[in-house]
Write a protein that binds this DNA or RNA. Structure first.
Length: 595
RNA sequence: GGCCCAGUAGUUCAGUUGGUUAGAACGCCAGCCUGUCACGCUGGAGGUCGACGGUUCGAGUCCGUUCUGGGUCGCCA
């Protein structure tokens, strides 16, 4: 039977006991990590959030405590009172290893069944079990450390922004559906039958309204929601560090955020980040790395072979170029011997998932080249390729010919995949950069119109304002992403604060005035009454923490994450609604067409 | 929606070409043990081989379907 505390007070954390406590009588409370029963002596390792301390139970001191201790098992909750003594034999592996508590009183506060997972860092339980019993999983020192690190990072951010004069302001969670974005989580309402709130994908519009309201510098560490498919670094609810500031230009936003990032690295990991961070226009990032979030920790950069192959006999290349596509290649320098035929097959499969039709390759050896396409290339073309790729013996060249998007996607992914396979990615190296000058619009062929690449309130670059109407495909935005080791950490933009320009934007997006008013009328209305120029940024806190500690997925830094199906294995959410509740909400369920 | 990977004691895994009673380690239970700290020793319990269907004299193993979890493409302004 569990015992009551009845006035027993904890005096110390287990993990804090040191030699300076020797001679003191202390009371510890925690979970049984391990029991070692030697017959006439029982040792218990007691664990709390700060660490583990050894308790020694001796029947000569207290028969009652000893008898109770003998009956404990892993994860029992105990309150132990006793004197701190120097150990007879020291355990150098733990910080408390020089001392132990000589127990004279024991209360078994809570018994525990045999847990389904081992509560140790060495536990290898699968994720399914870990998530179902997350409360046990979170008892592991490793998980405690991760979540406390996460708190530390968010506190550093909060403190920094406070120093800079930012004000933490809350925005509604029950809000309006976002047009043109990710899928929203919809929330029905009893008092507004037939109408729906949406959970915010970001507090974007409200933070802009705060700027209209004159708060000048706003921030919030806030949950955002997207009903989209999950990935290793994506959850349906995630935490953003949302920032907005007034009377600023792009440079001001970047400069402030760089210092924020610098502070986070310094105060959380002790890593020095040199400022200013490198900046790379979107166009350059795509051309060199095939990605708008380049991992710059290694080379293998993309090079264009268009000039060399535009008129090649080999139609696969020349026809692609003539029809508006491109031929690009990467050089896996010095890796020729590490790439077997089988590996090439798999790499070809890999690039095909990105839409590539094939993967051409040239192996460069001391004797010459080896390549399935050698026979289709003239001597000059081959020579040109090798020169462009700066190829030397031992190099391995991969070539993709296709329309631009496919070439960038497949080669961009391939260079990262190769770096992974060759173990060239160092988790302790942090390559940060800003990608700037994003396109303002993105053309959607299915919809037959332009969409805002960032969002429709993003300001075009000053020199591209005319292009919003005349040449939207080439208009660049005052938008920027912060990229860390090939992962998009966050992004933002300078917003449009001029109603006329905003109208032009909507027009370019093919939105009618009625649509615009229905969806964003409140914002446009607000902009009529005096709007400061403003801009901001939003960071993914989960991703940031994940990268800082080198975790392999975002779930490792979230206390109660969801599965790939957006379910919670612990609570079994989402669940079916009560019939009465549905009636109140005026909702009737119908079978989906696919069922 | 597509593709790929995994599912065998409480946990992590092994299980040959389809062949008798499905194994190991840790954990658990019982006994012994006064300085352990991965305590030790002895003994023991514990399995719908994810589920359903099929092939076969015979299926953990082969085939199909399905469920669960993961990775990924699409998607994620």
């Amino acid at each position: 039977m569990a015992e009551l505390l009845k006035g027993t007070k904890r005096t110390h954390y287990c993990g804090h006991l040191r030699e300076e406590h020797i001679g003191q009588t202390v009371t510890l409370m925690g979970w049984v990590q391990k029991k070692r029963n030697l017959g006439a002596l029982v040792f218990v390792d007691l664990r709390d959030r700060e660490g583990v301390a050894q308790i020694m139970f001796d029947p000569d001191l207290s028969k009652e405590a000893f008898d109770k201790a003998e009956k404990t098992r892993g994860e029992f909750v105990l309150a132990v009172t006793g004197e701190v003594r120097k150990r007879e034999s020291i355990n150098e592996n733990i910080p408390t290893g020089h001392v132990e508590v000589y127990a004279k009183e024991l209360k078994v506060i809570s018994e525990a069944e045999v847990p389904p997972i081992h509560v140790t860092d060495e536990d290898k339980a699968g994720e399914q079990l870990r998530l179902k019993y997350r409360y046990l999983d979170l008892r592991k020192p490793k998980m405690q450390k991760r979540l406390r690190f996460r708190y530390q990072v968010s506190k550093i951010i909060r403190d920094f922004l406070d120093e800079e004069g930012f004000i933490d302001l809350e925005t509604p969670v029950l809000t309006k559906p976002t047009p043109e974005g990710a899928r929203d989580y919809l929330v029905p309402s009893r008092v507004q039958q037939g109408k729906f709130f949406a959970l915010p994908q970001s507090p974007q519009l409200f933070k802009q309204l705060f700027m209209v309201s004159g708060f000048d510098k706003y921030f919030q560490i806030v949950k955002c929601f997207r009903d989209e498919d999950l990935r290793a670094d994506r959850q349906p609810e995630f935490t953003q560090v949302d920032i907005e500031m007034s009377f600023v230009e792009e440079e001001d936003v970047l400069e402030m955020n760089e210092r924020l990032i610098q502070r986070v690295f310094k105060d959380s990991l002790g890593v020095d980040v040199q400022l200013p961070l490198p900046r790379m226009p979107y166009k350059e990032a795509m051309e060199r790395f095939g990605s708008d979030k380049p991992d710059t920790r290694f080379g293998f950069e993309l090079k264009s072979l268009d000039d060399i192959l535009a008129n090649a006999e080999f139609k696969v290349f020349s026809d692609t170029i003539k029809s508006g596509g491109m031929v690009k290649a990467i050089n896996a320098e010095g890796k020729a011997d590490d790439v077997s035929k089988k590996k090439i097959k798999n790499l070809e499969k890999f690039v095909k998932t990105y839409g590539a039709k094939g993967l051409a390759w040239i192996k460069v050896t001391e004797e010459g080249v080896e390549s399935p396409i050698e026979k289709f290339l003239s001597e000059d073309e081959l020579k040109g390729i090798l020169e462009t790729m700066e190829a030397k013996a031992g190099d391995m060249i991969f070539i993709v010919a296709d329309k631009a998007r496919v070439v960038y996607d497949s080669l961009g992914a391939l260079r990262v995949e190769l770096a992974k396979q060759f173990e060239m990615l160092d988790d302790s190296q942090f390559n940060l950069l800003w990608v700037t000058e994003f396109p303002l619009f993105e053309y959607d062929e299915d919809a037959g119109r332009y969409f805002a690449m960032h969002h429709p309130f993003t300001s075009p670059m000053d020199e591209d304002i005319d292009k919003v109407e005349n040449d939207p495909g080439n208009a660049r935005a005052k938008a920027y992403d912060i990229v860390l080791n090939g992962v998009e950490l966050g992004g933002g933009s300078i917003r449009i604060h001029d109603a006329h320009l905003q109208k032009k934007m909507f027009k370019a997006l093919g939105l009618s005035e009625e649509e615009t008013n229905e969806k964003f009328g409140f914002l446009l209305e607000a902009f009529k009454y005096g709007t400061p120029p403003h801009g901001g940024v939003a960071f993914g806190l989960d991703r940031f923490v994940m990268l800082l500690i080198g975790a392999e997925n975002i779930r490792e830094v979230i206390a109660f994450p969801k599965t790939q199906d957006a379910k919670c294995l612990l609570t079994d959410a989402p669940s079916e609604a009560d019939a009465n509740q549905l009636v109140e909400l005026g909702i009737e369920l119908v079978a989906s067409e696919n069922e």
